[in-house]
Simulated assay, not measured.
Amino acid sequence: MTSENKFNRRKNYPSLSPIPILLGAGIAFLVISTFVFGADSPNPEWGKYWMIRPLILTPLAGALGGAFYAFLSYQTSRGFNRTVAILLSLVVYLISLWLGVVLGLAGTMWD
């Protein structure tokens, strides 16, 4: 008679990878850099360090969008439809990128 050890059975789910999060933040940084570093003559009312806020907020919003993609990627391994997950992730990433740009540039270029 053989006994089966039930404690050693584990399902292999993929772990949350930082790659989509970093990729989302990197893309967002490139997008906001085109606006921030492309400003030829910024308004003096904006202050000396006006570009710090958009360069921080927008990549954070992009990282949140990348984290949402990583979460849905994890859900596809549990049975969620992969096509729906990718499309939903793309929509959420674009919305978070847009909100990050708006929040970052509010009061400066976005008036």
Rank of each mutant, 00 (worst) to 15 (best):
P44Y: 07
P59W: 10
S77D: 15
L60T: 02
V91Y: 08
G79S: 09
R53S: 04
N43C: 00
F7P: 00
I19L: 11
N81C: 03
V36C: 09
I27T: 12
G24N: 12
L72R: 15
L88I: 09
L23Y: 10
L23F: 11
S33P: 07
W98R: 07
E45K: 12
P42M: 05
S89V: 02
A28T: 13
I32R: 02
F68P: 02
P14I: 13
P44Q: 09
F68S: 08
P54L: 03
L94E: 08
P18Q: 00
G100W: 07
Y74K: 06
N8E: 13
V91R: 03
P18W: 04
P42A: 01
W50A: 00
M1Q: 15
Y69D: 01
R82A: 07
M1D: 14
I19E: 01
A28S: 11
F29I: 06
N5W: 09
L87G: 10
L23S: 08
K11H: 11
G24H: 10
L103M: 07
S96F: 15
G38C: 12
S3P: 04
K48L: 03
L97W: 06
F68H: 11
A61M: 08
P44M: 02
A106Q: 12
L22G: 09
P14A: 13
L57V: 15
V92N: 07
N43Y: 04
L57A: 05
P14C: 06
N5I: 11
V102Y: 07
P42K: 08
A67R: 07
L30E: 05
V92I: 14
S41N: 02
A70F: 09
K48W: 03
L57S: 04
A106W: 13
G104Q: 06
K6Y: 14
I52C: 02
A39P: 01
L72G: 04
W50L: 00
L57Y: 08
T34A: 08
A63E: 00
S89C: 02
L30M: 11
V102W: 14
A61H: 06
I95W: 14
T83D: 00
D111Q: 11
V31A: 07
A85S: 08
F71T: 13
G104V: 07
P42D: 01
Y93N: 01
E4A: 07
V31L: 06
R78T: 13
L90E: 05
K48P: 00
I52N: 03
S41Y: 07
I32K: 07
G26F: 13
Y49H: 09
